[in-house]
């Protein structure tokens, strides 16, 4: 990654954090530097700027891991497997972060850290899938067989994800927006009812976290490549 992009990402995300935490919340907002108070959410609404982008990046990492899994099966080029496993590793970290930020939000908004709301169930399953993926990898020694079988598993797991994102929240009553019993519409993508300035900070955060993910991802891939080369040299 270019140096300006790295510095830019750091500055951008610092700005997002400062704006997201610093902009005061008032009843009647005027101008860009005032967020409206949402009844029932109040100051806790700020978490949307951090929790949702992290959850989104988790999904991006999962899709990338699956995509490079498919590419590995097509080409049998081990480099794609390195990319796939790097993405899955980062996805697992992000998944834990999304779970923790979500659980904290749930504690202060809904009363307990965990409620088995459909979305919470989905992220729990996503964690289980990631964990199972790494358990499977550790159970196979041969490099190519490990790559093939874990790619197949990531695809098989990937095709069940729509059941969690689209089917389950429709079936069970939940607390997240977009669940059954929520009057604000039933789409998987929330209706954007945020205040315009809050929406701008939110989208900026989304962009910032996505770029941060790609930065971490490229670092991880490079270090994995070097690790593999060193291993081959020592053999």
């Amino acid at each position: 990654m270019k140096l300006w992009l790295k510095i830019g990402t750091a500055v951008w995300l610092t700005g997002v954090i400062v704006l997201g935490l610093g902009i005061p919340m008032v009843k009647v907002p005027s101008g860009f530097f005032q967020f409206p108070i949402i009844p029932g959410l109040e100051e806790k609404a700020r978490n949307i700027i951090f929790h949702v982008p992290i959850a989104w990046t988790t999904v991006v990492a999962f899709v990338m891991a699956m995509w490079y899994g498919i590419q590995y099966l097509r080409t049998k080029d081990i480099d794609y497997d390195l990319r796939s496993v790097s993405s899955a590793g980062l996805g697992m970290v992000l998944c834990v972060l999304a779970t923790v930020t979500g659980a904290m939000w749930a504690k202060f908004n809904w009363g307990s850290f965990w409620n088995w709301d459909p979305r919470e169930t989905s992220i729990f399953i996503l964690l289980l899938i990631y964990a199972a993926y790494f358990v499977l990898r550790s159970a196979i020694e041969e490099e190519e067989r490990k790559a093939t079988l874990s790619s197949v598993y990531s695809i098989v797991a990937g095709v069940t994800v729509p059941f969690f994102i689209f089917v389950m929240p429709r079936m069970m009553a939940g607390l997240h927006p977009g669940s059954l019993g929520d009057s604000q519409g039933k789409g998987p993508v929330l209706q954007m009812k945020m205040a315009p300035n809050m929406l701008i900070v939110f989208l900026a955060s989304l962009l910032g976290f996505t770029i941060l993910y790609f930065w971490m991802y490229s670092l991880k891939v490079r270090s994995m490549r070097i690790e593999r080369q060193l291993q081959q040299q020592s053999e």
Binding site: A132, A139, T160
Partner: peptide, 27 residues
Amino acid sequence: TILAAIIAKANTKGTLFPVLAFPILLP
């Protein structure tokens, strides 16, 4: 069936199967 084909190639066969199958079969 596909998961059984996967774990047949792995080292720890018995314990691995429910671990791999549970998240996929949960829906």
